[in-house]
Simulated assay, not measured.
Amino acid sequence: MGPRSIRGPGAFVFLESGAVALRAKTKTPKAEVKKAPLPFSKAVWKAVRAIPRGQVRSYAQVALYAGRPGAARGVGREMATLPQQPELPLPWWRVTRSDGTLAPQVAQEQARRLRAEGVEVTQRGDTFRVKVPREVPAPGLATKRQR
């Protein structure tokens, strides 16, 4: 049996059978690599964009509209990255906790933006709160008619 040798990209590769193969270069410059958002991220962004002006949704409601019921924490992680990404024009300030409290890290800015849209924001000490609707009908679905 012949020697086995593997070197860097584009080098010869000697196989045990004695055959020689060339390995193609697979390096891509880091500047050209752009990661596409994950499907969950895109779904969350779409759900957040759909929140009408002057209304709020909880993380759990956004997860439900994104097609991932129970993924409220994932929505929270997505929302935490949005204020640092000004190139994504999403109304992140319309998403709150299920009890209506605003995240302490961005509460001042979030309250200012919500008030500008006509949402009533109450403040007690350092805690800001809005009223989150209990049930929001799914987009495109008709609600039951009262008899």
Results as ranks from 00 to 15, higher is better:
residue 45 W to K: 07
residue 49 R to C: 12
residue 57 R to F: 05
residue 103 A to G: 12
residue 99 D to W: 05
residue 49 R to G: 13
residue 97 R to N: 10
residue 85 Q to F: 09
residue 65 Y to D: 14
residue 66 A to T: 05
residue 97 R to Q: 13
residue 88 L to G: 11
residue 80 A to H: 06
residue 94 R to M: 03
residue 107 A to E: 14
residue 107 A to F: 12
residue 78 E to K: 04
residue 106 V to H: 15
residue 107 A to C: 12
residue 86 P to V: 07
residue 51 I to T: 10
residue 104 P to Y: 10
residue 45 W to G: 11
residue 77 R to I: 07
residue 42 K to V: 10
residue 106 V to I: 11
residue 52 P to K: 11
residue 83 P to W: 02
residue 90 L to G: 11
residue 99 D to G: 05
residue 42 K to T: 10
residue 65 Y to L: 10
residue 93 W to E: 13
residue 55 Q to K: 01
residue 57 R to C: 06
residue 70 G to T: 13
residue 103 A to R: 13
residue 96 T to D: 08
residue 99 D to Q: 04
residue 77 R to K: 12
residue 84 Q to N: 10
residue 53 R to S: 07
residue 79 M to D: 02
residue 94 R to C: 02
residue 46 K to V: 08
residue 48 V to W: 10
residue 50 A to V: 08
residue 45 W to F: 12
residue 101 T to N: 13
residue 60 A to T: 00
residue 77 R to P: 05
residue 90 L to A: 10
residue 85 Q to P: 08
residue 101 T to H: 13
residue 98 S to H: 11
residue 52 P to H: 03
residue 71 A to W: 06
residue 50 A to G: 15
residue 46 K to R: 14
residue 100 G to I: 03
residue 91 P to T: 05
residue 61 Q to D: 03
residue 52 P to L: 01
residue 72 A to I: 04
residue 71 A to F: 09
residue 53 R to D: 06
residue 59 Y to F: 02
residue 66 A to D: 09
residue 88 L to S: 13
residue 65 Y to H: 07
residue 68 R to G: 00
residue 94 R to Y: 00
residue 50 A to H: 11
residue 91 P to A: 06
residue 56 V to G: 04
residue 86 P to A: 12
residue 45 W to S: 14
residue 67 G to K: 07
residue 46 K to Y: 07
residue 87 E to S: 12
residue 91 P to K: 07
residue 101 T to E: 14
residue 68 R to Q: 04
residue 53 R to V: 04
residue 97 R to T: 07
residue 88 L to M: 12
residue 106 V to W: 15
residue 61 Q to Y: 00
residue 98 S to A: 15
residue 68 R to D: 01
residue 80 A to Y: 06
residue 99 D to Y: 02
residue 43 A to P: 15
residue 63 A to W: 02
residue 87 E to R: 14
residue 68 R to M: 02
residue 85 Q to I: 08
residue 44 V to F: 01
residue 58 S to T: 05
residue 94 R to I: 01
residue 62 V to Y: 00
residue 76 G to F: 01
residue 96 T to H: 04
residue 42 K to N: 13
residue 68 R to I: 00
residue 106 V to S: 14
residue 95 V to E: 07
residue 99 D to K: 03
residue 89 P to M: 09
residue 89 P to E: 15
residue 77 R to S: 11
residue 64 L to G: 06
residue 107 A to T: 13
residue 59 Y to S: 00
residue 102 L to G: 03
residue 85 Q to K: 14
residue 90 L to E: 12
residue 58 S to N: 03
residue 87 E to A: 14
residue 74 G to P: 02
residue 62 V to D: 00
residue 81 T to M: 08
residue 77 R to N: 13
residue 53 R to C: 02
residue 72 A to C: 04
residue 105 Q to A: 13
